[in-house]
């Protein structure tokens, strides 16, 4: 018996040492990524403290600033988005988010309803979201789909990203290397803004009706967006389907999504529609990073208008003077400092 206890103790001690080295090595070899960090920092928000969740891919990640909305309107929000986020990931990410928060509104960017998502080709994009997520049944479900679609990928590499990034030891200058664990708290609340950018111009006849038919919805994407909306309905959360400004968009696509939103019984807002564009007053030469994304100037401009729109439309609460939300004011100070040159 004594020998057995000694053996068990040694095994536990060995496992602890192994885990510590494993964790530290993972932090050294992790592919540093702002989007994964922002997705992960979500867990630091106090339970049930977020009023609005923004879900979807890069336009919402780059274009919506929860901090601007906080300063202007006082409601709390978080962007849980990542570049080219697959609708299946959005669904899982939302499911997981709702375990931590009970928002009044979910804003769903759904341009990807037209896209076929290739899990094999888009491994990098998948990882931006999944590497930031804690292990949960939602992450497990997403990974299972990924593995089913691409047998080169493994559950283990998503549970422990070191098994994916293990060969990065070759890229690292060990003399200067530092561990880069996932970010714990974010002052940007999920927004990953872009500075600078190229001056843009709207294409000819932009958002004007044409004889071209809208592309078909991707069946899988549509299914997941439906599931996402139904999940919100089950939890009595309002849903706003959203399209943010980008140059490669058409009137027909906009109408197709509007019809879909009507069918699903949710709101739809298309920021490329003429009347919204007029209100937004975006300058393509200044406010865009590239054809599909706002830069920091554009995101602030857009967030100011959009915050006002959400506040009025959904009658969101104002927490700015509440004791429990003082950390948001501190975070805003940091945000303002970092974006000072622009705002």
């Amino acid at each position: 018996m004594k020998g057995c206890i000694k053996t068990m103790t040694r095994c536990v001690a060995f496992f602890i040492i192994f885990s510590m080295i494993f964790s530290n090595t993972s932090d050294y070899l992790r592919r540093p990524d702002d989007e994964s960090d922002e997705i992960h920092a979500f867990y630091d928000e106090p339970k049930d403290s977020i009023d609005v969740l923004f879900m979807g891919s890069s336009p919402i990640l780059r274009g919506v600033s929860p901090m601007v909305m906080w300063k202007q309107n006082g409601f709390t929000s978080y962007v849980r988005a990542s570049a080219l986020q697959a609708p299946s990931v959005t669904y899982g990410l939302l499911g997981e988010s709702l375990e931590y928060q009970s928002p009044e509104l979910v804003v769903l960017l759904c341009d990807n309803i037209f896209l076929e998502f290739d899990y094999g080709e888009r491994e990098g994009d998948l990882r931006r979201a999944l590497d930031g997520m804690k292990m949960s049944k939602y992450k497990f479900q997403i990974v299972n789909q990924v593995i089913a679609a691409d047998d080169r990928q493994t559950l283990l590499s998503y549970m422990f990203p070191l098994f994916r990034y293990h060969e990065r030891w070759k890229e690292i200058n060990w003399a200067e290397a530092e561990p880069t664990p996932l970010m714990v708290h974010s002052f940007k609340k999920g927004n990953v803004y872009l500075r600078g950018g190229e001056p843009q111009e709207y294409p000819e006849n932009f958002m004007e009706p044409s004889s071209t038919l809208a592309p078909e919805f991707n069946e899988s994407a549509k299914d997941y967006i439906e599931k996402t909306i139904n999940l919100c309905k089950e939890k009595n959360i309002s849903v706003l389907m959203l399209h943010l400004p980008k140059m490669s968009w058409s009137y027909e696509q906009s109408m197709a999504i509007e019809d879909f939103a009507k069918e699903m019984g949710v709101d739809y807002l298309d920021c490329d529609r003429e009347e919204i564009r007029t209100q937004l007053n975006l300058d393509p030469a200044v406010d865009y990073y590239d054809q599909g994304h706002m830069n920091l100037i554009g995101s602030i401009k857009l967030s100011q208008w959009f915050g006002e729109y959400l506040d009025i439309t959904y009658n969101l609460p104002d927490h700015r003077n509440e004791e429990a939300y003082q950390k948001w004011n501190e975070d805003y100070q940091l945000y303002a400092e970092k974006t000072k040159a622009v705002s």
Binding site: T25, L162, F163, H166, E167
Partner: peptide, 15 residues
């Protein structure tokens, strides 16, 4: 530990 981490880091596996 050296053996295990050699395998993890230098093993030819993954995507």
């Amino acid at each position: 530990l050296a053996a295990i981490f050699s395998l993890i880091l230098f093993g030819v596996y993954g995507l």
